[in-house]
């Protein structure tokens, strides 16, 4: 395959030479016959690191993760808004008598099925 097509008018030939020179200068591939070389697939920027980190990263520490690195005396200060709301609701329920039932004292009652009549 000729590097520069030789069936060109002098003006067109000159232009082809210019393009070839320009390709050399700007580090591009000179492809006068426009053959499909698939170079565009290699030229493309890789986007895996962008598309791969779409969701929230799980490496970001939560309040509970931070809590572990502090002494026990001040760990109770690490409270989120959700915790506050939860506590508020629990206390409100308790005031209305809808809290947790008390645990029974003593041994568990005997199973009625195992009793002989």
């Amino acid at each position: 395959m000729p590097v520069v097509p030789n069936t060109l008018t002098p003006a067109a030939l000159r232009l082809a030479q210019l393009i070839k020179l320009s390709c050399g200068v700007f580090n591009e591939v000179y492809n006068p016959t426009q053959i499909r070389t698939g170079a565009k697939y290699l030229k493309r920027k890789l986007k895996g690191h962008v598309t791969g980190s779409y969701y929230t990263p799980n490496s970001f520490p939560s309040v509970y993760d931070l809590k572990k690195h502090f002494p026990k005396e001040i760990q109770h200060r690490f409270i989120t808004n959700e915790d506050k709301y939860k506590l508020h609701m629990t206390l409100a329920r308790k005031r209305r008598g809808k809290g947790k039932p008390k645990k029974k004292d003593g041994p568990p009652p005997e199973d009625p099925k195992s009793k002989k009549k």
Partner: peptide, 24 residues
Amino acid sequence: HFKRQQSAEHEVTVNALRYISRNT
């Protein structure tokens, strides 16, 4: 999320295969 991680991992391989298959 799984698809995103896997496609990111195989991106270079896919690009190389695409280059070979489309190169006339």
